[in-house]
């Protein structure tokens, strides 16, 4: 089984966000593997362990993503690939990223491609399905279970809380939803082994792509922080009176009930 994982390096979920020079300030911020991509890596490792084969983790980004790729290798992935666009691309969008990934994957004979269902920074959830479309393979998003039996695949998909049981076949792309598995922490031997595992670095040239081929179709013109909320009103007095006051405030002042 030839398995690929699409991974993104993102801000730690606990980080506060600030802006400088019109951009999200990255100075001193902690970066992690996008949490949904951790489920993808874990699932890929489990599938490989059950079915045999190889797990390759790919990311599109800058050299700084090497750290997260090494973490994925320490978890148990076999190979990592960084497609470094830092020198070539000033601005990219989901079209760009998907096009680059699909170009890399098109001759790799992937049986299974797994990504997170969304990245917690950009939050668009587009790249996985776009890649599947470009490779002309089926996909299922937000999965919570995956069973492979020969070339038949049974997937459980989370649909706003309900579950769909879906039958499909390999090659396939799926995106991971919370609940798919419990991602492991890298073990110490895993971390030692990861240092010797292959981590290839490619640029657009290596994929025979020109900047024009992947030029973004959309553009961010402004980034801003939400308005600071005014401190709220903590009610006082007898509990029963507070409850009455709250209902009255919601009805008459906030007018939401």
């Amino acid at each position: 089984m030839n398995i690929f994982v699409l991974m993104k390096r993102t801000f730690d979920t606990e980080e506060k966000i600030s802006i400088s020079g019109g951009k999200i300030n990255e100075d001193g911020a902690e970066f992690i593997i996008n949490p949904y991509d951790e489920y993808a890596i874990e699932e890929a490792i489990q599938v490989r362990d059950a079915q045999g084969g190889e797990v390759t983790v790919i990311t599109v980004g800058s050299e700084e993503a090497e750290k997260q790729l090494r973490t994925a290798l320490a978890m148990g992935a076999d190979k990592a690939v960084l497609i470094n666009t830092e020198d070539d691309l000033e601005y990219s969008d989901q079209f760009t990223t998907a096009k680059i990934l699909a170009e890399y994957l098109k001759d790799k004979d992937a049986d299974l491609i797994i990504g997170g269902n969304v990245a917690i920074d950009g939050g668009s959830g587009q790249v996985g399905p776009r890649v599947a479309e470009l490779l002309n393979i089926p996909y299922v998003t937000t999965i919570t279970n995956l069973e492979i039996n020969g070339s038949t695949v049974t997937v459980v998909r989370d649909v706003e809380g309900d579950s769909e049981v879906i039958e499909t076949s390999l090659p396939l792309l799926v995106t991971a939803q919370q609940g798919l598995n419990e991602p492991r922490y890298p073990s110490l031997p895993g971390i030692m082994k990861a240092k010797k595992k292959p981590l290839d670095e490619l640029e657009l040239d290596d994929l025979d792509l020109e900047e024009d081929d992947v030029e973004a179709k959309t553009k961010t013109i402004e980034i801003y922080l939400p308005a600071q909320k005014q401190a709220g009103k903590v009610l006082e007095g007898e509990l029963a009176d507070q409850v009455k006051e709250l209902v009255s405030l919601l009805h008459n002042e906030a007018k939401v009930v």
């Binding site: 079209f95 668009s124 587009q126 399905p129 479309e133 937000t142 989370d158 706003e160 179709k217």
Partner: peptide
């Protein structure tokens, strides 16, 4: 931008090689 929209829209954008502004 529902379960359906999130699943379907990137496929259409991929097919048309168009941009897509989500959510």
């Amino acid at each position: 931008h529902t379960s359906l929209g999130k699943d379907l829209s990137p496929r259409i954008a991929g097919k048309l090689s168009s941009g897509l502004i989500s959510d």
